[in-house]
Design a protein around this nucleic acid. Structure first.
Length: 478
RNA sequence: GGCGGGGUGGCCAAGUGGUAAGGCAGAGGACUGCAAAUCCUUUAUCACGGGUUCGAUUCCCGUCCCCGCCUCCA
């Protein structure tokens, strides 16, 4: 069994084979650093993080590159509004992005190239296209001559003649053809500018990815990722620039994630329904949030709403609850890895099928269900059950945390930290409760339990005594 | 208008030419003083109409509806 991926370019799923045996080179379009990340960015980040983690887990050596667009019209606009230098804006939001991605549990890219750090590479690429008459300088701008690239439209499946609708193109003054797009933009007074053979200016958006991906990953790298909304024109233009200039394949697989929706609407600034990623992380916690992100296959739309995040929280808790119980019951017994093997196989089969995360999570549910069944026997000290439960818990951590990044271990560690801090207080309350129960004063006993529950402390009365723990769910998720 | 995705049980969501995973919620049961956690049981003619086929939810055609992209966007 091996991974198959749906490739937007060919519109089909096919076995993934890397350019270089054992290695995967992947490039994912990063942010334009002009504002805070929102939950849509988070979905793309998690989708490609999981792809990357899965590739690593199955044995590939992955090189992940994600660019930062640190010069662009919107950055300039924002800088002007704030009366700061664009570089200040770009640096601020680059740091914020990295911090948020870290909080989301996204592995940092191996290379995080900045557009402003690759002016030479971009200019070389532009010059190459000019030399071949596939681009032209006009009025200090440089445009790509779209009609010279016969493959134009192959990614988005658009016929070039259907595109002529869009007449409302802003700086079309110097264009030969309205479809042509800018690779270099001449600087207006007061704008940041870099020297170039065509006059001072700054790079267009698409050119950076063509130049930086090729520089850091080489030609014909394995996977290019990004949101479905980038297919046209961004990715289409990236392909055109590279392939027209070099005559070879730019990227081998194009993977795109679907959009996050709010209800039936797209999340967008104009509608005013953008949820900042930091907010979602604060409300729900990274684990439940990632469970939600993985609740739909990566190419389909995903709706953000309270009910679904609650569901995701419940799922996350089911996993952490099992882990907590399993470890307690298993003790130090050596895990029986054979018991976990079929669940791991099911998980792999799901992931191999174009990263079918919902089915992979279903495999985790099956694993947990099997484990829960064995729990009573394990708690009785039956060795076989203990060994099985131990193996299932290990597998859940390996698949859930290492591959899906669900932060199960971290959630338990965080809870354990709180448990330690609260222990004296909780124990004292539980003594009072025990006394009340002894006296059949259940009203008092239940009131204490309710108070603890309100503080996130769950109390369970077991045959072998009272057990308590701090919930791994956020207040919003309870 | 062009391109693309989708309509599966109360909700979410997989999937297959031979009558449909998993989760959430609900109901019932076991356990409990009551709970919690867990386990067991339980809920679907897969948008509609044709066609192909021994047989279609799955393939083809048409219809209706929803969504995205076509301008910056993960």
């Amino acid at each position: 069994m091996a991974l198959s991926l749906y490739d937007t370019l060919t519109r089909e799923e096919r076995p993934f084979e890397p350019r270089d045996a054992g290695k995967v080179a992947m490039y994912v379009c990063g942010p334009t650093v002009q504002g805070d990340a929102h939950i849509g960015h988070g979905r793309a980040a998690v989708v490609f993080d999981v792809l990357r983690r899965y590739l690593s887990w199955t044995g590939y050596e992955v090189t992940a590159v994600q660019n930062v667009t640190d010069i662009d019209d919107k950055i300039i606009l924002r800088a002007r509004r704030e009366q700061r230098d664009p570089a200040v804006i770009a640096t601020r939001y680059t740091r914020a992005w990295n911090r948020t991605m870290d909080a989301l549990g996204v592995l940092p890219p191996d290379v995080q190239p900045l557009a402003t750090g690759h002016l030479i590479e971009m200019q070389d690429l532009i010059q190459r296209l000019i030399d071949q008459d596939k681009a032209y300088a006009a009025g200090g701008d440089v445009f790509f001559r779209v009609r010279t690239f016969e493959g134009y439209g192959k990614l988005s499946r658009r016929r070039i003649d259907d595109m002529q609708q869009g007449e409302d193109i802003v700086d079309a003054d110097h264009k030969e053809d309205p479809l042509d797009f800018a690779m270099w933009k001449s600087a207006k007074p007061g704008e940041p500018a870099w020297a170039s053979p065509w006059g001072p200016g700054r790079p267009g958006w698409h050119i950076e990815c063509s130049a930086m991906a090729a520089k850091h990953l080489g030609h014909g790298f394995d996977i290019h990722g990004g949101g479905l909304d980038l297919v046209f024109p961004h990715h289409e233009n990236e392909i055109a620039q590279h392939e027209a200039a070099h005559g070879d394949t730019f990227a081998r697989f194009w993977v795109h994630n679907g959009m996050v929706q709010m209800g039936t609407e797209k999340m967008s600034k104009s509608v005013g329904n953008v949820v900042p990623l930091e907010q979602a992380l604060a409300d729900w916690g990274v684990g439940p949030l990632r469970v939600w992100y993985l609740s739909a296959q990566h190419r389909t739309p995903l709706t953000f709403d309270t009910e679904r995040l609650r569901d995701a929280t419940t799922v996350h808790q089911r996993f952490t609850t099992f882990l907590r119980s399993a470890r307690r019951a298993a003790g130090e017994v050596e895990p029986d890895t054979e018991v976990a093997a079929p669940h791991i196989a099911a998980f792999r089969a799901a992931m191999d099928a174009d990263l079918n995360a919902p089915v992979a999570v279903a495999a985790l549910h099956e694993l947990v269900g099997a484990g829960n069944e064995l729990l009573p026997a394990a708690e009785r000290g039956e060795q076989a059950a203990q060994a099985a439960v131990a193996a299932l818990a290990d597998a859940l951590i390996e698949l859930g945390d290492e591959v899906l990044g669900l932060h199960l271990e971290e959630a338990l560690t965080d809870a354990a930290g709180l448990e330690q801090q609260l222990a004296a207080l909780v124990e004292s309350l539980l003594e009072q409760r025990a006394a009340a129960r002894e006296a059949k004063d259940f009203a008092t006993a239940d009131a204490i339990r309710d108070q603890l529950a309100a503080a996130g402390v769950t109390v369970e009365d077991r045959r072998d005594g009272v057990r308590w723990y701090v919930s791994t769910a956020s207040p919003a998720g309870r």
